[in-house]
């Protein structure tokens, strides 16, 4: 089985701080990491490979040249190949344009029986690229996958996390799945894996290698535009509210959700 895992290098949002004077986000010194739920997607693909010798796992990312560091990490975990799609023409893409671009890269790689993505990236938190990618590739999708079992050839049984429980679904490959953190605990890197990762070559793609044009990707092609950004005031630590109980409850829950604690 050939599997392509879509990964993203993201700033560790837990390390992002707000400048107390300018109220802007301090990005300097914030470490870049493999998006956590993408690591779950990669781990599950590697487990399938462990059970099915001969299976192949390709880690694919779209991003700046620096994202190669994250791809090395994917190789060190056990990915067979790593592919970086990097081109100025794709910069600033929204989820629609990103999905067009990654779908094209997957076609350029000859497609796969299983496309695995993390549910969402911790910088954007949209959870949109997975389903949009499935649409572009004409594949069925199962999002919020918390458990995966391979049945007979080409048939998967998955548990899809819901708000108050889960659904058990069966789906045939080729399919796109999105992983949630409950799916597994990603493996640690081994010294041997790290050494081997530096012997492997990272394949670099540009828009020239793809079957799309600048009209399908990048900032200008994106249907959505960022109108403005601002720093929320209520999310700062140490706030004190003294008002109607309902309003305080609403503010509190909004703050906790934004911090992903509930």
């Amino acid at each position: 089985m050939k599997m392509i895992v879509c990964v993203k290098q993201v700033p560790d949002t837990a390390e992002v701080r707000i400048d107390p004077v300018t109220h802007t986000m301090i990005r300097d010194g914030v470490p870049s990491i493999l998006n956590p739920e993408d690591a779950n997607a990669l781990e599950e693909s590697l487990r399938i490979k462990d059970r099915h010798p001969g299976a192949k796992v390709i880690a694919l990312t779209m991003g700046p040249p620096q994202a190669q560091a994250m791809l090395r990490e994917c190789l060190a975990m056990g990915a067979d190949e790593a592919v970086l799609l990097t081109d100025r023409a794709v910069a600033g893409a929204d989820t629609w344009a990103t999905a067009n671009t990654i779908a094209s890269a997957i076609r350029a790689l000859g497609g796969a029986e299983l496309i695995f993505v993390g549910r969402q990236a911790i910088d954007g938190d949209t959870a949109q690229v997975g389903p949009q990618l499935a649409e572009r590739l004409g594949l069925p999708q199962v999002t919020y996958v918390q458990k995966l079992t391979t049945l007979e050839d080409g048939l998967l049984q998955v548990e899809r996390r819901m708000e108050q429980g889960y659904e058990v679904l069966r789906v045939r490959t080729p399919v796109l799945l999105s992983a949630v953190k409950e799916l597994n605990a990603p493996r640690c890197l081994s010294i041997l894996g790290i050494c081997e990762a530096y012997e492997k070559e990272i394949k670099i793609l540009s828009i020239q290698d793809l079957d799309i044009t600048p009209a399908d990707t990048g900032l200008n092609a994106s249907p959505t535009k960022v109108y403005r950004t601002f720093t929320p005031k209520t999310e700062r630590a140490g706030v004190l509210w003294e008002e109607d109980a309902g309003r305080m409850a609403g503010k509190l829950l909004t703050a906790l959700r934004e911090k992903h604690v509930i």
Binding site: T13, A14, D125, P232
Partner: peptide, 21 residues
């Protein structure tokens, strides 16, 4: 439609437009 949402783990708010489509 002006659509406002949190990003970067709630560290930033962004207002998004879909002006043409």
């Amino acid at each position: 439609l002006r659509q406002t949402r949190p990003a970067f783990g709630g560290n930033l708010m962004a207002t998004i437009l879909c002006p043409v489509r």
